[in-house]
Design a protein around this nucleic acid. Structure first.
Lengths: 151, 151
DNA sequence: CGTGAAACATTTAGAGG
DNA sequence: CCTCTAAATGTTTCACG
């Protein structure tokens, strides 16, 4: 990971389909050299993969919410993971410090659909005591930056 | 947006660098037909772009947190957006319903760095009254699914 | 690690159903 | 809206500094 790798990461975050030739022009290397570096970044796990960024709202999924999950008793992360993964509307889930046991980010078509997904979250994980939902009013920042390039 | 477009979205979310030839084989179309469809999905804004997925932890950014921001008085979303965008560690920010005014997701190198970023969040937005931070213990789910394909 | 050349594959515009 | 063709580009391997 030198300075050129960092620039390549930033360029690939910006345009994941950029050709090796173009990347090479930008960082001052030949296409084969760039390919070797990118292959290495992928092999090392620094680049986990490439993906299309989908605009949820354009597909009619207009409701997004952050959900605090409070559980009773002690519950392992693995059990929670299995439960949340079973609800496809759950885009992100993580156990956290503080009063809540986990925080979810749920994307749904509308409020009715969100309610339905929440109901499934509650019944899938038996240990869920209650949930506290904060519906997103407007998204202010949505960054997909190459870290280390961000500061 | 027909069934083929949905399958293309799912394939492109899975591998954002997949060639039109391969995509065409998977959906039963020729490469030019696939390119036209993908170009249209991008032009229509359904596909916002393509990006590399970076593994933050591999770059030494191991601390992630969800932060509730409480403000005093009334404050517009635009003012908040400008403040949060000025702190590069803020990966996501959204105004929400409920007691908190906004929820942030911050990624930092370590707890000390997180504290530093939080300090900048508080001073950048003058209206911030207090913040409530939940540090991520373990990430359970991290989905980047093509919606509409998720259910 | 890098480069340049060469083989191979993909992209992309145009013609036509 | 698709396919086919064909030239332009891009990818990938390899020999070499």
């Amino acid at each position: 990971m030198d300075a050129i790798d960092e620039r390549l990461l930033a360029l690939l975050v910006e345009d994941g389909r950029a050709s090796y030739t173009v990347l090479g022009d930008r960082v001052g290397l030949s296409a084969p050299a760039v390919k070797r570096r990118v292959d290495r970044l992928v092999a090392d796990g620094i680049v986990r993969g490439f993906t299309a960024v989908i605009d949820q709202a354009h597909l009619g999924w207009t409701t997004e919410a952050y959900v605090e999950v409070h559980c009773h008793g002690t519950i392992g992360p693995e059990e929670l993971r299995a439960s949340f993964a079973g609800v496809p509307e759950v885009q992100d889930a993580a156990t956290v410090t503080g009063q809540a046991d986990a925080i979810l980010r749920i994307v749904a078509r509308d409020v009715r659909h969100l309610e339905d997904a929440l109901e499934r979250v509650r019944t899938r994980a038996a240990a869920v005591e209650r949930t506290e939902t904060a519906i997103v009013l407007s998204r202010l920042v949505e960054r997909r930056a190459a870290l280390g390039t961000a500061d």
